[in-house]
């Protein structure tokens, strides 16, 4: 892009933005009289300020590759103001459901010399995939939007939209690290040479670890009364893990283990982990204490 082009673009942008009328935002209530400076809402129920929120929930992971996680947990928060709170969030995941892709690998996956370590026996593939077992985080919660909604013009409910940012830890169980440099997992089973027991044993060997991860969420609270609300939330906890338990990476040109290295490297290791968003849908029910909500001026 030439200097002339850049200058032209800059000038065009300047003219464009300069030409915008200097009127207030259309949805900004333009008040210049006795209502000037007043709150946009008066006599509003202050649901959060000075109150403790306990919100049990169920969470369902989204866009899972090999295993869907269903968990149960709770959020415990204290709200310093009506728009800001601090708290802890966590869940335990007792339910893991294989995805259709996992079922397909179990039914039709093939083991060759090249992927003998990745898939020693296709029927055991669902035992080598990674799972999320639990997660916990400390978080800050911002509530920038507060309002009400009408359902079929019959039911009118208070609601607010919140954003949570935090940092936590995720308990994951993955296929245990193993190296097959000695070649015990280098050949595919055949009618004359069944699968090596040592190789198959590596398929079901598990290792648990704790992965640090940031977390962020966006949610909507719909208030049933002064002290209870329905929560609908989307949350993500991005971190790298080996979801498939397969040999995906090795050492790259610099000798560093990562998943861009040569395939196969005949080892299940941290080099096989890939970054995932790990997002989920959460439905919960909040209880606020004390049970009485203050009314604003």
């Amino acid at each position: 892009m030439t200097k002339h082009t850049i200058i032209s673009l800059a000038v065009a942008c300047g003219i464009l933005f300069g030409a915008l009328p200097e009127v207030a935002h259309a949805q900004e209530v333009q008040i210049t009289g006795p209502l000037a400076g007043q709150s946009s809402v008066r006599h509003m129920r202050v649901y959060r300020e000075g109150r403790v929120q306990l919100a049990p929930f169920a969470n369902f992971t989204l866009q899972d590759e090999f295993s869907r996680t269903i968990g149960f947990g709770a959020t415990l928060s204290y709200h310093l103001t009506d728009w800001f709170g601090i708290g802890a969030w966590g869940f335990f995941a007792p339910i893991h459901i294989d995805t259709a892709l996992t079922d397909q690998v179990v039914q039709t996956g093939q083991t060759t010399d090249r992927n003998a370590l990745s898939l020693p026996q296709r029927g055991l593939f669902n035992q080598q995939i990674g799972n999320i077992d639990w997660a916990a985080a400390l978080q800050l919660t911002f509530i920038p939007l507060r309002g009400k909604l009408s359902l079929f013009q019959k039911i009118f409910l208070d609601a607010d939209l919140y954003i949570s940012l935090g940092f936590g830890f995720v308990g994951v169980s993955e296929r245990a690290d193993v190296t097959s440099e000695s070649g015990f997992c280098a050949t595919a089973p055949s009618p004359t040479a069944p699968a090596n027991d040592d190789c198959v044993a590596t398929q079901t060997a598990r290792a648990s670890r704790v992965a640090p991860a940031p977390t962020f969420a966006v949610g909507l609270s719909i208030y049933a009364n002064e002290y209870m609300a329905l929560n609908l939330e989307w949350r993500a906890m991005p971190f790298a893990w080996n979801t498939s338990g397969t040999d995906e990476g090795g050492r790259n040109e610099l000798g560093v283990a990562d998943n861009s290295g040569a395939f196969p490297d005949h080892a299940i290791s941290s080099a096989d982990r890939a970054f995932h968003l790990n997002h989920m849908f959460i439905i919960g029910w909040s209880f606020y204490l004390p049970s009485h909500a203050r009314i604003s001026e």
């Binding site: 935002h25 949805q27 900004e28 209530v29 709150s39 946009s40 809402v41 509003m44 728009w83 920038p144 939007l145 507060r146 309002g147 009400k148 909604l149 009408s150 609601a159 607010d160 939209l161």
Partner: peptide, 10 residues
């Protein structure tokens, strides 16, 4: 419905 942002914008 409507939302108020920080009790200012609607």
């Amino acid at each position: 419905g409507k939302f108020s942002m920080f009790n200012d914008y609607i």
